[in-house]
Simulated assay, not measured.
Amino acid sequence: MSLRTIELLAGQVLAIVTLRDVFDTVVVPGGSKATLRVARRCVALLLPLWKHLRHRAGISTTFAPMILVLSFVIWMGLLSLAFGMMAHALSTSFDPPLRSFSQAVYLVGSGLVTVGLSETDALGGARWVVLGSGFCGLAVMTMAVTYLLVVQSSLAGRDTGILKLMTAAGNPPSALRLLERHAAIENVSGISRVLDDGRDWCASVQQSHAAHPSLIYFRSVGTGAGWPAALGALLDLALIVEHLLDFREARGCAALMREEGARMASELVTLLKLPPAAPAKALEGANGLKSRLMAAGYAIRQDADLEAFLRARQEHAVLVSALADHLGLPAASLD
């Protein structure tokens, strides 16, 4: 087998692997399962450096967009290299023949970006290489635009839920402050609606972020502590209603919210392969919890067990804290 043939086959393999990675990352729900995993490798490489440079400031609003743009740049670069190898292997099929590998990359690169600049005419099989580069470039750029629309739509739904929660729960959100706020405005019956909306929010965020893991790293302006703190506050709210309050009409909503939120936290922690993180203190914010609820006008269950509540909270707090620590964001507190 000649070197030209090996170069042609290597270019074809690289093009197929790259396109598979783009397709699995952008189109197929669940993230990239291909060999390259460009987006995930960019995050794994740059996230520790980014967090180190920003210390405790967390991930900025520019990190996730930068990873997204960098991924598409790398994909286009790999496709330029792949089709350049194919064109160089067929250099004698051009008129005049290609003089160098850099000329071959320039020729197919212009096709990838749909400019179509060329100093030579393609003949025979080389025509299909040039045509294939243009088609793949158009496909990748189309998927990039489509993916941006998916990102914007998913982030809008996620951030709307966070902003609504912050209105009553503060920033960072707290389940106790939310309950006190609803009691102060005489809207205790609205707690059930908050739990139902929270359950819908958890299901929506879990579906979108598990399908497209890059969404996990997007942080929008004005959303305060971010989505891990919002998730923690909703889980705290569900546990308080379930374990401490004599509020039977909301207990079923709380149980469903807790299950949905715990499933969301568990799936995202598993997806990111994060070790569980220990919360700051098991009793942090718990002292005076019952007295503050009673002062707000809530009836406490006769069989309320604060220790059982804290044990249940510990189960989800280790997951929420792992997500928050990974993103450099604060977790929810009971205060």
Score class of each variant (00 low, 15 high):
S110F: 10
G134R: 07
A324V: 05
A254E: 08
G134T: 10
T5N: 01
L112C: 12
T61C: 04
A144E: 13
C253M: 06
L53S: 05
Q314F: 10
A322I: 03
L334D: 03
V27D: 06
A39L: 11
H326C: 03
Y217Q: 04
V13Q: 05
S192Q: 15
H316M: 11
A282V: 13
L334H: 06
T142F: 14
C202D: 05
L293P: 09
A169C: 08
S291R: 15
L234C: 01
A82Y: 03
L138E: 08
F72G: 00
T160Q: 12
F247P: 00
L45D: 04
P330A: 01
A44R: 11
L78N: 07
R199K: 15
A262G: 12
P276C: 02
L19M: 15
F135S: 13
Q152G: 14
L47F: 00
A175R: 03
P97Q: 09
D305P: 04
C202V: 07
L70V: 14
L138H: 09
L138G: 12
T223C: 02
R263Q: 12
A122D: 03
S133Q: 03
R54G: 03
L98R: 02
N287Q: 14
G134C: 03
V145A: 08
L283P: 00
A262I: 14
G109Y: 04
R56L: 06
A64K: 05
L283K: 10
L231W: 03
S291G: 07
L9Q: 01
G222M: 05
D325K: 14
A332F: 02
L117C: 11
L272P: 10
A225I: 02
L117H: 14
D196W: 08
S291Q: 15
G232P: 04
V105S: 02
A169N: 08
A308I: 11
L47H: 00
M166Q: 08
A203T: 11
E267F: 01
Q152Y: 11
Y217A: 02
L14G: 03
D24K: 02
V113Q: 10
E267I: 11
I59R: 01
G232H: 03
A331Y: 00
A225M: 05
R193E: 13
E284T: 06
S100R: 07
D121F: 13
K273A: 12
L123D: 13
R56T: 05
A324K: 02
D21R: 02
L78K: 13
L112R: 09
L334S: 09
W75N: 01
G137I: 10
A183V: 12
S192H: 15
G124Q: 10
V17Q: 00
A44Y: 01
F309R: 07
A233S: 15
E242F: 07
V38D: 00
Q207C: 01
V108C: 06
D196L: 12
G132R: 04
A308K: 10
G137P: 10
G261Q: 09
T61S: 07
A317S: 11
S333V: 09
L148M: 15
L256Y: 13
M143S: 10
A229H: 02
